[in-house]
Amino acid sequence: MNTTKTININYLNLNSMKTSKFFISALFCLTLITSFTSCSSDDNDPKEVVEEELITDVTLTFTNTTDNTDTVVLASIAPDGQDGASTETITGTFTAGATYSLGLVLTNESEDPADDVLNDDIIPEADEHFFKYAVSGIGLTMTRDSDDTDGAEGSKLGVKTTWVAGAASSGNVQIALIHEPQTTDDSDAWGTSTGGSEDLNITFSGVEIE
């Protein structure tokens, strides 16, 4: 009886071990197969995401139409683009009573060479864009030039504008770029719009007319 018992127990264990062994090896195979396929794509370092249509530098250059040495330059530099911190600088003052034409430069300096966003991206897709301007506390008025590019929803884009400086004063100047607005209106030259998203909204404070 005893010998029979021992044999039985061995048989039982053998049986269970076999099953477990089979099972464990099956599991590992499965793990290996699945992890192998999933790991393979991953051995390389991740690719850098270069955000499209990044705008790092925005420069507004106002030039006196009768004296091209009289300029006012409003510059904004945001090394990380629209989602990062920016620094604004103002060079020069407006002359009371003078008329200025505005030259816009929008670039992406994070690329090498720098990307001319205005001429390469915005103007070719002018029908999706609209520049808006606003001032506060400073006697500036503006008009959109007749040869200004046509922008979104039947309005002038706002890349060619003429500004007139009134009496001596100081205040803020704001420029905004709207992407895919639902409606635009330039009957008031500053421009109004609904919908879309703001690609830019920069305010320069402490602009002066002397």
Binding site: S35, S38, C39, S41, D42, P46, K47, E48, V49, E51, E52
Partner: peptide, 21 residues
């Protein structure tokens, strides 16, 4: 446990969550 996260760069948006194991 082994875990692998892949953040696809084709989004054109910088990853909020990185690739990790």
């Amino acid at each position: 446990r082994y875990q692998d996260n892949f953040a696809n760069p084709d989004t054109g948006v910088r990853r909020l969550i990185p690739d990790y194991t």
